[in-house]
């Protein structure tokens, strides 16, 4: 049949092993003796943006945090199940947590630049890894800042305090800080909730551009944002994965009544 519009969306059941970036198998998480995630299984595709949506407290941030084991840093926890990234179960006993975290970037709700220069902020992760070669650091910082679409704005003031940047610039700096380590997966926890609408759009555009380099997983309260940027979307409710599909179908024809109620704003 004649096709007017190109649609490349694979259905979520069809991902091959090569196309999968994060493979979550029967993940259960309890924080402070309270069950937060219940038997989540989800395959997140490579080089796509996957959005996790749901109400506050539904466990989407916990799910995001379990991809780089940040839950362990935050509170007492109990985790069962497996999360496979790059053919490695990150909950394996032999896994070194700090190395894992350096390979999975994370951007938080509020920009949290360290009180150092812009340069030191971006090179922080590399220096923690023991990288000392000045030229290598210079190149990495420039590359990361270019990738985060910040280079042109800060090239003349790399050694000024990062706190002098505006909110949107700071958030892009945070993305650059994560990108400097060349992560395979970039986790974004409501990255634009503290920003104005226009800056939000710029960050979203940046996310779309970053698809070339890594897999992006974004938690957002903003349904519009999830609809705008994501290729795939997962709706989580009370610790359960209710629906997971490509966002074109999720936002036009959800399969589950619960999802429809949530995205249309009918939730009680």
């Amino acid at each position: 049949m004649f096709k007017l519009f190109e649609r490349e969306a694979l259905s979520v059941e069809e991902f091959s092993k090569e196309q999968t970036s994060v493979d979550v198998r029967h993940l259960c998480v309890s924080l402070n003796a309270k069950k937060v995630l219940n038997d989540i299984s989800i395959r997140i595709p490579k080089n796509k943006i996957t959005a996790l949506i749901g109400q506050s407290g539904c466990g989407k941030t916990t799910l995001l945090n379990s991809f780089n084991r940040m839950n362990e840093f935050i509170s007492t926890h109990e985790i069962s199940g497996e999360v496979w990234i790059d053919n490695r179960n990150i909950y394996d006993k032999r896994e070194r947590v700090s190395r894992l975290r350096s390979q999975i970037g994370m951007v938080f709700q509020r920009p949290n630049p360290f009180p150092m220069s812009i340069y030191d902020n971006v090179s922080f992760g590399l220096r923690i890894q023991g990288e000392k070669r000045r030229r290598f650091l210079d190149d990495s910082v420039e590359k990361a800042l270019r990738n985060a679409a910040l280079w042109d704005e800060v090239r003349d003031r790399l050694f000024e305090s990062a706190l002098t940047l505006s909110g949107g610039q700071q958030q892009r700096l945070m993305i650059a800080r994560a990108l400097a380590l060349e992560p395979k997966v970039l986790l974004l926890d409501e990255p634009t909730s503290a920003l104005d609408p226009l800056t939000t759009l710029y960050i979203e555009e940046l996310m779309v551009a970053l698809k070339q380099q890594c897999t992006l997983i974004i938690v957002t309260h903003n349904m519009q944002q999830a609809a705008r940027v994501s290729d795939y979307a997962a709706f989580i409710h009370k610790g359960e994965l209710i629906e997971y599909s490509d966002s074109d179908s999720l936002f036009t024809m959800p399969n589950k009544q619960q999802t429809e109620d949530y995205i249309t704003g009918r939730y009680g």
Partner: peptide, 11 residues
């Protein structure tokens, strides 16, 4: 369908 998709996703 495309119109509907754009309305849903792009507002």
């Amino acid at each position: 369908q495309e119109c509907m998709r754009i309305i849903a996703k792009r507002n």
